[in-house]
Amino acid sequence: MKSIKLKEMKIGKFSLKYPIIQGGMGIGISLGNLAGSVAREGGVGVISMVDIGYEEKDFYTNTIEANKRAFRKELQKAREIAKGSGIIAVNIMRAINNFEEYVKVAAEEKIDAIIVGAGLPINLPELVKGSDVMIAPIVSSARALRLIITKWKNSYQRLPDFIVVEGPRAGGHLGFSKEEVEDEQFSIQNITKQVFEYLKSNESIIGKIPFFSAGGINSPEDVNEIISLGADGVQAATPFILTNECDASDGYKKVIQQSTKDDLRIMKSPVGLIGRAVNTPFLQKISLGRIAPTRCIDCIQACNPKTTIYCITEALINAVRGDYENGLFFCGANAGNGKEIKSVKEVIEELVSKLK
């Protein structure tokens, strides 16, 4: 493996000290404190937009406004912590209802970047027209990336400012079938090579677009390998759960910390995708039958409250509060494996420690 030099990276008008994106984790796992702390160290800190207003008093009666209000609070917190360093981004799932409205409020608040996954953000350039916010899709293949770039270039004369390429070993929602998750041809290493080849072969037409690979990356060896295959950097999520600055409860962190690979399971989500999570009593209950929602805030496009197997919002809120019995605890394929809780600074420095 060739030696990779650690150097400052430019994305748009921003400079990154470290080629690290902290993955967006919702509900309530990556908010202003974690995102601001990652940006302060010179990385990309990411606030998760999904039902960010879950602690607001009117969340269940005025959901959209509660989410907007909470987002503004968390963005302000992140900016105060970052003090102008790094990049502060927001992750907005394409699969949520009112996607367009949330993108527009993020742009109005002059967030540095909007990252979109859980569906192809075909019309994203139109939604941020008139702002200078950076936009980035999350894709799971070179084919999906080609589709987005072609559409954005032809319809909007716009290209991604950067790209996140996510493999099947990620936590949370996955853009793969259950069979593909176990198939080596869909490994993040292979996808990284394919994306690099596609971007390189089209560089004369589309220019240089930096991309970050994600999915089960939690060691300096992983980072070095992925960058040696052509990626400009990596996105990591689970390692940042095990930090002092993570916005989740201590109970949530403890569940992730104590999990091993054997504790994880591929499960169905009302979002319409499969996901990877800790095999808690909640997952065991839904494997036996439906848990009907007690209320609905109409959050997911693909979810019908009359037939859904469970309410994902309720399960994720239970998790962020540390409710092991009733929570859905998303986690990357390498799990926590008893790693100690560290600072964001220590996690980042460890991840890049093999870069020269």
Score class of each variant (00 low, 15 high):
Ile291Pro: 00
Ile209Thr: 08
Gly215Trp: 11
Lys253Tyr: 05
Cys296Ala: 02
Ser249Phe: 07
Ile217Gly: 11
Arg321Ala: 08
Pro210Ser: 02
Cys246Val: 06
Glu245Gly: 04
Ala214Tyr: 11
Ile309Arg: 15
Ile274Glu: 12
Gln194Tyr: 09
Ile206Ala: 09
Leu264Ile: 04
Thr238Ser: 14
Lys306Met: 13
Tyr198Arg: 07
Leu229Trp: 06
Val271His: 08
Cys246Trp: 09
Gly216Asp: 07
Gln235Ile: 00
Ala302Cys: 07
Ala236Phe: 05
Ile286Pro: 03
Lys268Met: 12
Gln284Tyr: 10
Arg265Glu: 13
Ala319Glu: 01
Gly289Thr: 01
Glu245Tyr: 07
Thr243Glu: 06
Gly275Met: 14
Ala231Tyr: 01
Pro239Ser: 04
Gly289Ala: 03
Val181Lys: 13
Ser213Cys: 07
Phe186Val: 07
Leu199Met: 06
Gly322Met: 10
Asp263Trp: 09
Arg265Phe: 12
Glu245Gln: 10
Ser187Leu: 05
Gly322Ile: 12
Ile256Leu: 10
Gln258Leu: 15
Phe212Pro: 00
Gly251Met: 07
Leu288Trp: 00
Ile209Gly: 10
Ile300Ser: 01
Asp262Lys: 15
Ala319Gln: 04
Thr260Cys: 05
Asp232Glu: 08
Ala214Trp: 12
Lys254Arg: 15
Pro270Leu: 02
Asp263Gly: 11
Phe196Tyr: 15
Ala319Tyr: 03
Ile297Gly: 00
Cys303Thr: 11
Phe211Ser: 04
Ile241Glu: 07
Ala302Val: 09
Gln235Pro: 01
Gly233Ala: 00
Ser201Glu: 15
Lys178Pro: 03
Cys311Glu: 01
Met267Asn: 10
Asn224His: 15
Ile317Asn: 00
Asn190Trp: 02
Pro305Ser: 05
Leu264Thr: 06
Ser187Gly: 04
Val181Ala: 13
Glu197Asn: 14
Gly233Met: 01
Ser177Gln: 02
Val271Trp: 11
Glu184Met: 11
Ile274Asp: 12
Asp250Glu: 14
Tyr198Ala: 05
Tyr252Asp: 00
Glu245Phe: 02
Ile286Thr: 07
Phe186Ser: 09
Gln235His: 04
Ile266Gln: 03
Asp247Ile: 04
Phe240Ser: 08
Lys254Asn: 12
Cys246Phe: 08
Gly230Ile: 03
Gly216Glu: 05
Glu180Thr: 07
Leu242His: 10
Val255Ser: 04
Ile286Cys: 10
Leu273Asn: 09
Thr294Gly: 14
Ala248Cys: 13
Lys268Thr: 12
Gly272Phe: 08
Phe196Lys: 14
Phe196Pro: 01
Thr192Cys: 06
Asp183Lys: 12
Thr308Leu: 04
Gln258Lys: 15
Asp263Val: 10
